Amino acid sequence: MLLDVALPLSLAFIMFSLGYGLTFADFGRVLAVPKAALAGMVLQIVVVPLVAYLGLQLFDLPPALAFGVMILAFCPGGVTSNILTKLAGGTVALSITLTAVVSLLSVLTVPVLVGWAAKTFLGDGAETINVTAIAVSMFAITTVPVLLGLLIRFLAEDFASRSEALVSNIALVLFVVIVVAALATNWGLFVENIARLGPLLVALNAVLLVLGMVVARVIGLGGADGICISIEMGVQNAALGITVAGLVAQVGGIPEFAVPAAVYGITMYIVTIPGMFLLRKVFHEA
């Protein structure tokens, strides 16, 4: 099926665009600003799934959609988080570093966490999940494209700088296409569950944005770092969530597990864009 080929290829190009905008120096910032980088990584990898899990205890969702919410929560920050961080006055270098590092680590974290979530939310109805196969597939469609983009940037920096905007725009279009395709494929399921799914996703987004700023202040980070970490927590890689859902379901097309990621791919901007400016105002005046 065309969609089964187009979806991973589109995600691979989106991840390639992330690597295309990176330099090896970006990864060195993990050591240069260890507190901010470590805090951002822990919040993204540990706290985001924890908040999602707690949120699911308060909202009554069908098991498949609850599992889909957890898949979304396991994903790293979205590729547009760097742009939003810049617009909001956050630390762009930290945003780039967190997006890149957590995206690479997701090859290890996402398959293991998905296996746990399937048993927890689907129970006996869960299909046997091949964690190794998911890890290999994620490596092929996320890590390899990032490293390829990074390598091209290193070998042909002038060319990469000139074409970076074009590559980013193509990636943005592909992201929109993935989200629209996921919603269109599961439109009936979306309409049936949006009243229950929407409030949870909006609340999750808002809590993550606020939590990122609060934790940053508590551990002594500046407002710009707080904005960055807040956005990295609130903006998830919905395209990756949709793709992982397909890898788990092992069926043609886009499965119902992907619906939360598809919906969040839209609502996260509706919540995050006004939210980040409000947070900047509140915390800068505090």
Rank of each mutant, 00 (worst) to 15 (best):
I254A: 05
F74M: 11
C228P: 09
S17M: 06
A245M: 03
I219C: 06
F257I: 04
A258M: 01
D26E: 01
T85W: 01
Q250L: 14
I96D: 13
G40Y: 11
N82F: 01
T23H: 10
I242F: 05
I83Q: 15
I242G: 00
L18A: 04
A36L: 06
M233S: 04
L172N: 15
D124Q: 15
A171L: 09
S163W: 15
L43T: 00
I219H: 02
L166V: 14
N130E: 14
F190E: 02
I83C: 12
A216K: 11
T143M: 13
V218F: 11
K86H: 15
G55M: 00
A52R: 01
T132I: 15
F175R: 15
G78Y: 04
I229T: 12
L22M: 06
F27R: 14
F154S: 01
L211N: 00
A195I: 12
E127V: 14
A117D: 03
T267C: 03
I178W: 01
V207R: 03
T185D: 05
I273V: 14
T142V: 11
G149K: 08
V110G: 01
L147T: 09
V101Q: 05
S10T: 13
R29D: 03
I170T: 10
G19R: 01
A25S: 11
T80K: 11
A224K: 09
L7E: 06
A238Y: 02
Q44G: 07
F27L: 12
G246Q: 11
G90M: 00
A181G: 02
A100C: 11
T23N: 07
V112W: 12
D225I: 01
L247A: 04
T143A: 15
L105Q: 06
K35M: 14
L31V: 15
I254C: 08
G220K: 05
L9G: 13
V179Y: 12
V46E: 08
V202F: 12
L279M: 03
I254V: 10
I219W: 10
P274A: 07
I152V: 07
I254R: 00
E285N: 06
F283K: 11
A224F: 03
A261C: 08
L240R: 02
T272L: 08
V177S: 07
A32D: 13
V282I: 05
P145R: 02
Q250Y: 11
F283Q: 01
S17N: 13
G77L: 03
L197Q: 00
G222K: 09
L240N: 02
L108F: 03
V110L: 07
V202G: 00
A216S: 05
A195S: 05
M268K: 15
I134K: 12
S106G: 13
V92D: 02
W116P: 10
A224R: 04
S230M: 04
L113C: 07
S230C: 07
A160I: 13
L104D: 02
T132H: 09
E192H: 14
G40D: 02
V5R: 08
G234I: 00
I242M: 04
I194F: 06
L98R: 03
L9V: 13
I83H: 13
N237Y: 00
P34W: 03
L65A: 09
P8Y: 08
V110F: 04
T23C: 12
V5W: 14
A6R: 15
G21N: 06
A206S: 02
E164S: 13
E157Y: 12
P76D: 00
R29S: 05
T99W: 07
V79C: 08
V282L: 04
